[in-house]
Nucleic acid binder design. Structure first.
Lengths: 336, 336
DNA sequence: TTGTAAGCGTTATCAC
DNA sequence: GTGATAACGCTTACAA
C-alpha cells in the first residue's frame, strides 16, 4: 500500500492543502498542525508522488544525458561527474546510449521529450542540425560536453583540443625530441580529430621542425586497436622517430603494446605521450605520460551549467577547461 | 509551445477520448477519424506527456539502477547491457551512484520511490537488510546483478565466483604450476571476496597441492594499487611462486606493473591470471589471461528479468551465468 | 491559519 | 463509433 496526500490529510484531520503547504515548506499553518501532519506522514511512511508533482509543476527533476558509447572510462568519468552534480541538485539522470546513430539519437530525444525531462547534456559527438532543431522545439536547456557546435549558440564545456595537443607536442620537443610522429583520430572529425592534428602541426612549426605527412597516421577512431596498427605503419613510414603523440590514451596504449611486440623499448627507444588521462593511463606498463582532461570536473560543470540555465534561463558562457601534462614513465629525454 | 491531447482533439474536431484511443492503438473509431487525428498530431508535432500517463497508469517506464561506483569498466559494461535491454523494452534507466554508502543508498531509494520507478536493479554490492525492507515497501520488483543475498528471495544474475576462481586456479595447475599464489579481495566480502578464495583453495586441494597462508594476500578492495602492493608482499612471503591468481583484472594488472618494476618477466618468470575480462585486460602488456564474466549479457539478462517480473509478477529463477577462460599472454607453461 | 476547488494531461468508464 | 466525465496525486489561487 502506498499512501497519498489525502491519507495524510485524513489521518491528521486537516485538508490536503495544508499538508501540501507543510511538505513544501511554505507558510500559513500553525506549529501545532505542522507537528500533527508530520506525525501522520511519519506514521504512514508517506512519500510524495513525484510524477503528480511533475505534472503540475512542469519540472520532473530529471535530466537526460546522451552518450555515443557507454563502455569506456572516458565517458564514465564524465558520467560520474554529471551524476554527482545532478544528484546534489536534487535531480536524477537518465542515460541514453546513442551509438552515434542518428536514428537512435532521434528516438532517444523523442523519449526524453515525452518524459518531459528538464534539460539535456549532449556529449562527445557532433550535434547534428536535426538534433539541434528537435531539442530547440523541446524547449529545454542543453549543454554540450566534450564537444561543441559552431552553427548554433549552445554553451559547451570542453578543453581546447588544439591547445592541449600543442602542449603535448611541445612537451616532447622540450624533452629534446625532433622527430616526432603523431597517431591521430579521424581528420574529418572537426571536434576532436582535426584540432589535435592542428595543434601537433602548430607546435612543430613554432619550433621550426619540419612537417612530414609520413609522420602522421590517420585513423577512423581512437581505439586501442587503431593504436596498435598505427604504430606499425608509422614506424614503417618513418623509422627514425624518437617520439610519438597519440591523440587518445587508448591509441597510446595500443602503440605501447605494438612497441612491446616489435621489441621496441618505451621510453628508452621511443617516447609516447597520450591524451585524456583515463584510469588506464596509470595502469599501463610503463605508466603513460599524457595530457589530462579533468573529465569528472567537466561532467560536474556541465550539469551545474544546465541547472543554472534551468533556474534563470539567462544565457550562459561556455567553459574551456584547463588541461595539463601528467608526467609518468612513457616519455624520456632524448639523448644528445 | 508544447501541445496536449486537447489541442489535437480540437484541431481534428473529435473528443480527447477518441484521440486517446487512437494513440493507444485501441479499437472504437473509424478509419476516417483515425486519419484525421493522425494528421492533426502530425501537424502539431504532438507528443504524449509521459508524466500524465505515468500518473494514471502507475507505470513510469523507468527503472533505477544502483551502482557502488561508476568509473570502472566493470560497472559500465553492466550498465551498457542494462541500458540496451531497457531501451529495447521501451523504458529508460536512471543511474544512481551510491559509493557503497548506506545513507546515500537510502536517499537514492527514496528518490526512486518518489519518482515511482517501475523496478530496481541493484548491482555489485551487498543488499543490506535496510535496503531490502525499503524496497519491499516500495512494492516494485528488484533483481540483483553481480551480487546475491541469502537472507531473502531476491532473484539474481551473476557467475559462480567460487567455481570461476576454481577454474582459474585449475587452469594454472593444468599448465604445470604447483606453487601458486593468490591476490585476493576482502575475505570478509561474502559475495566476491570469500568465494574466490574458497575456489582457489578447493582447486589446490583437489589436485593435492598444499595450502599455505603465506601464499595468499588479502586486500581491502580489488584495485590496481592493491594489486601493485600485493605482489611485492606476496613475493616477499613466498619467493618461489611461479604463478598467481588475482581476484580481479585490476589486481592482476597492478601485479603485472609491480613485476615490471621488480624486473620480473611476465609470463616467463611469473604467470598471472586475472578475473573479469575487462577491456583493460586486452590492453595490458602482456595481454592478460583471465576468467571472463559476460558482463554486458549479465546486464541485459538482469533487465529482461526485471521486465518479466513487471509483466507477470510471478516468481522468477536466478541465473548463474557461464564463465570462461580467455587465454592471452600472461600465463605460460611451467617448464619441467 | 485553514479549506475548497480548479487544473496539470492523460486514461477509462460510462452513456449515447 | 464517439463523447462527457471522473479519476490519478498533487499545487495553488481564492475564500473563509
Amino acid at each position: 500500500m502506498t499512501f497519498t496526500i489525502k491519507d495524510v490529510a485524513k489521518l491528521a484531520n486537516v485538508s490536503i492543502a495544508t499538508v501540501s503547504r507543510i511538505i513544501n515548506n511554505q507558510t500559513g499553518y500553525s506549529e501545532k498542525t505542522k507537528k500533527k501532519v508530520l506525525e501522520a506522514i511519519e506514521e504512514l511512511g508517506y512519500e510524495p508522488n513525484a510524477v503528480a508533482r511533475g505534472l503540475i509543476n512542469k519540472r520532473t527533476h530529471t535530466i537526460g544525458v546522451l552518450f555515443p558509447k557507454l563502455s569506456s572510462t572516458l565517458v564514465t568519468d564524465l558520467l560520474s561527474g554529471i551524476e554527482k552534480a545532478t544528484h546534489d541538485a536534487g535531480s536524477s539522470v537518465i542515460v541514453c546510449h546513442t551509438e552515434s546513430n542518428g536514428e537512435k539519437t532521434m528516438k532517444y530525444l523523442q523519449l526524453l521529450n515525452e518524459k518531459r525531462i528538464d534539460g539535456i547534456i549532449f556529449t562527445s559527438a557532433p550535434l547534428l542540425e536535426e538534433y539541434y532543431q528537435y531539442i530547440k522545439k523541446m524547449n529545454v536547456p542543453m549543454v554540450l560536453l566534450s564537444t561543441e557546435t559552431y552553427a548554433h549558440p549552445v554553451p559547451y564545456v570542453k578543453v581546447n583540443d588544439r591547445h592541449a595537443a600543442y602542449t603535448a607536442t611541445q612537451f616532447l620537443i622540450n624533452k629534446g625530441h625532433e622527430k616526432i610522429g603523431m597517431i591521430s583520430g579521424n581528420k574529418d572529425d572537426i571536434i576532436s580529430g582535426k584540432p589535435r592534428i592542428d595543434g601537433y602541426i602548430s607546435a612543430l612549426q613554432d619550433h621550426n621542425l619540419p612537417i612530414d605527412e609520413k609522420k602522421i597516421i590517420y585513423n577512423r577512431g581512437f581505439s586501442f586497436y587503431d593504436g596498435m596498427d598505427s604504430l606499425k605503419t608509422l614506424l614503417k613510414q618513418a623509422p627514425d622517430l624518437t617520439a610519438v603523440f597519440a591523440a587518445s590514451d587508448e591509441l597510446a596504449i595500443g602503440a605501447i603494446s605494438s612497441a612491446y611486440q616489435l621489441g621496441i623499448k618505451v621510453p628508452d627507444e621511443l617516447s609516447i605521450i597520450g591524451y585524456d588521462n583515463l584510469s588506464i593511463a596509470e595502469m599501463s606498463v610503463p605508466p603513460l605520460t599524457t595530457v589530462a582532461q579533468p573529465l569528472t570536473e567537466m561532467g560536474e560543470m556541465a550539469a551545474n551549467m544546465l541547472f543554472e540555465m534551468l533556474n534563470s534561463d539567462k544565457l550562459i558562457e561556455s567553459r574551456i577547461m584547463p588541461h595539463k601534462i601528467v608526467e609518468r614513465k612513457s616519455v624520456r629525454d632524448k639523448e644528445v
